[in-house]
Design a protein around this nucleic acid. Structure first.
Lengths: 166, 166
DNA sequence: AGCGAATAGTTCAAGCGTCAAGTAAATTGG
DNA sequence: CCAATTTACTTGACGCTTGAACTATTCGCT
């Protein structure tokens, strides 16, 4: 791949304003959700997300590599977080019987409790900050835009999540 | 432990999918932009943003507190980053003549160079990932959604950024 | 089979961000 | 006009993320 020869197609004024507002959302929204969860439940947004993904799967069990995909995280980051969460008793690791290389994370009872205690406040925050200020049409437009963006961010896996056995 | 459904107003299936896709964008987009800038220009996205804000102001000078607002960062984080950028010669700090407590960041020639070298690749990435996959109507809908979200994130300053001074 | 490559995960050092505390200057209020 | 408060920033300790190894297993090819 050539280092794309200058394509100075600058942004139009409108595009630039749209982008700058997106950057604001991109930085403030995660920070706000993090603060809420940390304050009310002692979890970072990422930790919550990990536990939440586990809780949504019937077996409460996922391989780390899948958990990494689901949370858009590196295996390294996930490995560290899983170790800490295990230390706190919110989940445990066990070897995958089908693949000697793999590990599974299993939500414990304490972990289930923690997500269930954290969820209402988190959902309230998501509603307040994102869902409620938009009418249904706007939310679905936002969703469509995100799907298109994700198509560019990850051309590989944008070919649909066949999994997610809710 | 759900005290009979209604209190936390759970998300509908559609809202939940929209939110999960937003979370993916929220985590992957900054990571991707960071990687591109770091690889091609040796700057983090945040560093680029700081330099870029300075370069857009005629005097190439801003008070740190204003720079913090413009980049949605804490003063503490900004202070650290400014110190590092100063060490690399991309900007310098000087006391504000009008207020003994304040400091100003001033872009140096090397800093101007750095932004100008980094900008084309960054803009290309932003176009590829966000602007191009959306048609103009979608982009403006996205912008509208972000404005509403920002209204909730920061009720105070959502009253127009009247900047471009100093 | 068997060997090289890919996959799954862990770990460690380095760097960055955050929060709490600290300094210094300006503003407010009595 | 002085004390209390607020504003503007800086610093230091601590925790988290990253990226580069490194180990252990499984896959893919011939």
């Amino acid at each position: 791949m050539t280092p794309d020869s200058e394509d100075p197609r600058w942004l139009t004024a409108e595009q630039r304003l749209a982008w700058l507002d997106m950057v604001r959302v991109l930085t403030r929204l995660p920070a706000t959700l993090d603060a809420q969860l940390e304050r009310d439940a002692g979890l970072s947004f990422f930790e919550y997300h990990v536990l939440s993904m586990l809780s949504e799967v019937p077996s409460h069990t996922l391989r780390l590599s899948r958990l990494a995909q689901l949370t858009s995280s590196s295996l390294s980051r996930l490995s560290n977080v899983v170790k800490r969460l295990e230390g706190r008793g919110l989940l445990r690791r066990e070897p995958d019987p089908d693949d000697g290389r793999a590990s599974r994370a299993v939500l414990t009872a304490a972990g289930t409790d923690a997500v269930e205690r954290a969820a209402p406040g988190h959902v309230t925050a998501v509603r307040e900050l994102v869902v409620d200020p938009l009418d249904p049409a706007q939310l679905s437009q936002l969703h469509a835009a995100h799907e298109r963006i994700l198509g560019r961010l990850d051309p590989a896996s944008s070919s649909r999540p066949e999994w997610l056995e809710t």
